[in-house]
Computed example of a mutant assay.
Amino acid sequence: MSNVVIFGLVGFVVVAAAIVPLSLLVEAMRPVPRTPERLSWAPDIPIRYVSINGVRLRYIKTGKGPVLVLLHTLRTQLDLFEKVVPELAKSFTVYAVDYPGHGYSDIPAAKYDVDYFVGTIEGFLDALNLHDLTLAGVSIGASIALILAARNNPRVSRVVAINPYDYAKGRGMARSSFLARLFVRAAEIPIIGETVMRLRRFFVMKSALDGGVSDPRHISPELLKEMYLVGNRRGHYRAFLSLLRNAETWETATKAYSNIKIPVLLLWGDRDWSRPDEREHDRQIVPGAKMATVAKGGHFLPLDRPDAVVEHLLAFQAPLVRKASS
Rank of each mutant, 00 (worst) to 15 (best):
V4S: 12
V5H: 12
F7M: 12
F12S: 11
A16R: 08
A16C: 13
A18V: 10
I19A: 04
V20G: 06
P21M: 06
E27L: 15
P31K: 04
V32K: 15
R38W: 12
W41G: 02
A42L: 07
D44M: 07
D44Y: 08
P46K: 01
S51M: 05
L57F: 09
K61Q: 04
T62I: 14
K64L: 14
V69E: 00
L74K: 02
R75A: 11
Q77A: 10
L78K: 02
F81W: 03
P86D: 03
E87W: 00
T93A: 02
V94E: 03
Y99Q: 07
H102L: 08
S105C: 06
K111S: 05
D115S: 00
Y116I: 13
G119M: 06
G123C: 12
L125K: 02
L133M: 12
G137W: 08
V138N: 05
L148S: 00
A150Q: 01
P154L: 02
R158E: 04
Y167R: 10
A174Y: 04
S176T: 09
L179F: 06
R181G: 14
F183M: 07
E188K: 14
E188V: 11
P190Y: 04
T195R: 07
V196K: 06
M197C: 08
R198W: 08
K206Y: 09
K206N: 09
L209D: 02
V213F: 10
V213Q: 04
H218M: 15
L223K: 01
L223R: 03
L224E: 12
E226W: 08
Y228V: 05
N232E: 03
N232H: 08
L243Q: 05
R245P: 14
E248V: 13
E251K: 12
E251W: 15
N259C: 09
I260R: 01
I262M: 05
L266N: 01
L267Q: 11
R275W: 11
E280V: 07
D282E: 14
D282F: 09
K296P: 13
L301C: 07
L303Y: 01
L303H: 02
V310N: 01
L313Q: 00
L313D: 01
L313R: 00
L314V: 00
Q317G: 01
P319S: 00
R322G: 06
S325A: 15
